[in-house]
Design a protein around this nucleic acid. Structure first.
Lengths: 95, 95
DNA sequence: AGGATAGGCAAGTCGTACCTTGCATTTCAA
DNA sequence: TTGAAATGCAAGGTACGACTTGCCTATCCT
C-alpha cells in the first residue's frame, strides 16, 4: 500500500484521525477506548494497531515511544497533496 | 460504496479526474484514450465506465447525455468535506 | 431499414484489504 | 525476579472491490 488515499479509504482509520485531533499523544489503548465511546466502533486492539501502522506509514500519524507505551499524534501535512492536486471550489461543504 | 474517500482510493479513478480537468466534457472513449496516452493505463472500456459511475455516484463527476454520447465534467465540490474535516497546515506539499 | 457507433447491464473470477488468533517482546512495579 | 501491562509479529480466514466476459439498448448515418 503506502498511499494516503488508500489510508483514508477506511472509515475506522478516519475515525482514528478524528480522535487523535481531539486529544494529542494518545496510546493505543486510549484510541481503542475512544473509538468505542465516541464512534461505537468495537475494533480489537490488533485491528487498531494495524490501522495506526498504516496511518503512520503514510505520514498522517507521528509516534514517539515512552517506556512501554507509544504515543500518537495527528499530522495533516500529507493532506496538502490532495488539496493541491485538484481544484476545490470555495464555500462551505454541503454535507 | 458511495463514499468519496473510497472513490479516491483507486489510482485509475484519480487519473480519470486528472484527465477530466485537462479537458472538459469528455466522452467515455476519450477518457479511455487519454488514460492510455498520458498515464499508460490500458483499462478496458467497461472498467473505465464503472470507474466513472463510482465517481459520479459520489459527485466528483457530473454528466450530461448528448444523443448517443455521454459527456463528463469534473466537480471538486465534494473535496471540500475533506478539507473541512481535518486541519491542514499551510505551505507547499513536500512530495 | 440496416449497419455502425457509444454506451449499459449482469454474472463470474481473482486479488487483496481487513480482521482474527496465537504467541513473542519489552517495560514497569512489587 | 516474577507477574502484569502495553505493544509487536506472523499466519490464516473472509468479504469486498476491480476487472473481465458476454450480451443488450439506444442513437446516428447512408
Amino acid at each position: 500500500m503506502a498511499d494516503i488515499y488508500r489510508a483514508l479509504a477506511d472509515p475506522t482509520r478516519r475515525a482514528i484521525l478524528d480522535e487523535l485531533i481531539k486529544r494529542e499523544g494518545q496510546t493505543l489503548f486510549e484510541v481503542c477506548g475512544r473509538l468505542a465511546m465516541a464512534h461505537g466502533i468495537a475494533s480489537s486492539r490488533q485491528a487498531v494497531s494495524q490501522h495506526l501502522a498504516v496511518l503512520e506509514e503514510v505520514g498522517l500519524v507521528r509516534t514517539e515511544r515512552q517506556g512501554r507505551t507509544k504515543l500518537h499524534w495527528f499530522d495533516g501535512s500529507p493532506l496538502k497533496s490532495i488539496v493541491s492536486r485538484w481544484p476545490i471550489p470555495r464555500g462551505k461543504s454541503k454535507s
